[in-house]
């Protein structure tokens, strides 16, 4: 009977000793890795006029829809373009562009425009394998038109796939980190 008592005592102790920890100091997590904001800056090579496209989703995979803003573009103009990826959940906002460029072999930005929209994109940067990344690019507009422009960041796709270096997304595979759709007007 003595050992019986010891056993029950031991078990009860174990149960209740562990009940006492109070974790009121629970730590809030601000997503570290999420990209909340995509900003495309387009500089007219002749006039230095700046146009901006922005896609911003501050609640990550929360229910709120992203806020999309897009300046109208000028017809028959060549823009020097650059993309910035931010995580605005961190304070100050974290610039994720650097990471994307550092891991350029695994990342590529694709520009997909509807056939109606007269835009042409050329990559101006390259990763270590001499494949484009797409953070730096040039955009040449044609005549006045409007339509959809999708800017897609693919992670871990096959950058050597057929057409990938020319910006064709079809054979790349990989996983989509960003897919931002803009209604663009060229005037």
């Amino acid at each position: 009977m003595k050992s019986l008592k010891i056993v029950s005592l031991f078990s009860l102790l174990a149960v209740f000793s562990s009940c006492s920890d109070d974790d009121d100091n629970i730590q809030i997590i601000n997503e570290e890795e999420v990209i909340t904001t995509l900003t495309v800056t387009l500089v007219d090579q002749n006039t230095n006029e700046v146009k901006t496209l922005q896609y911003r989703d501050l609640d990550g995979d929360g229910p709120e829809s992203p806020i999309v803003t897009a300046d109208n573009l000028d017809a028959n103009t060549t823009y020097q373009g650059s993309i910035e990826f931010l995580n605005e959940l961190e304070d100050p906002a974290e610039d994720i562009t650097e990471e994307v460029v550092e891991e350029g072999e695994e990342h590529q930005v694709f520009f997909v425009n509807s056939t109606a929209l007269e835009t042409n994109f050329d990559y101006l940067d390259a990763d270590a394998n001499n494949n484009p990344i797409g953070v730096e690019f040039s955009l040449t507009t044609g005549n006045a038109s409007n339509g959809n422009l999708s800017i897609i960041l693919i992670h871990d796709g096959d950058k050597f796939a057929e057409g990938a270096a020319d910006g064709e997304i079809n054979n790349v595979g990989g996983e989509t980190d960003i897919e931002a759709n803009f209604d663009v007007v060229i005037e």
């Binding site: 078990s11 890795e33 550092e102």
Partner: peptide
């Protein structure tokens, strides 16, 4: 019969992530 049991389960799942993560 008496029985006491302690279980400790640790689960880590790794995603495809970027940079320092």
């Amino acid at each position: 019969e008496f029985q006491y049991a302690f279980q400790f389960n640790q689960r880590q799942e790794f995603d495809v992530r970027r940079g320092s993560n």
